[in-house]
Amino acid sequence: MKRSTIIIALFVILAVLHQDCWNWANSNLVFGFMPVGLAYHAAYSLVAATFWALVIKFAWPANLEAWADEIPDSD
């Protein structure tokens, strides 16, 4: 399977996970101070950052970078 396909699939999964309908009416507190609806999405932000870190590691557009650098910068 191509890397781009895997990334798109993971992105779609993350978009689905964002909907967390199972937490909608849950008023429990995580660590005694954070409502589940907030704790889940705070953790989601960290997962999103990890996802993009993996994308950059495994799917960095090196060809695009080289293509841009073919033309030297000048003032």
Binding site: F11, H18, G37, A42, Y44, S45, A48, A49, V55, P61
Partner: peptide, 27 residues
């Protein structure tokens, strides 16, 4: 729900825009 509505979705989508649009536009 304010956080999920506006913030966590932005974390995913903004970063997608920077990666997919920003870098290419810059080049």
């Amino acid at each position: 729900g304010t956080y999920g509505l506006m913030a966590s979705s932005s974390g995913l989508v903004h970063a997608a825009c920077f990666f997919l649009i920003g870098i290419r536009v810059w080049a």
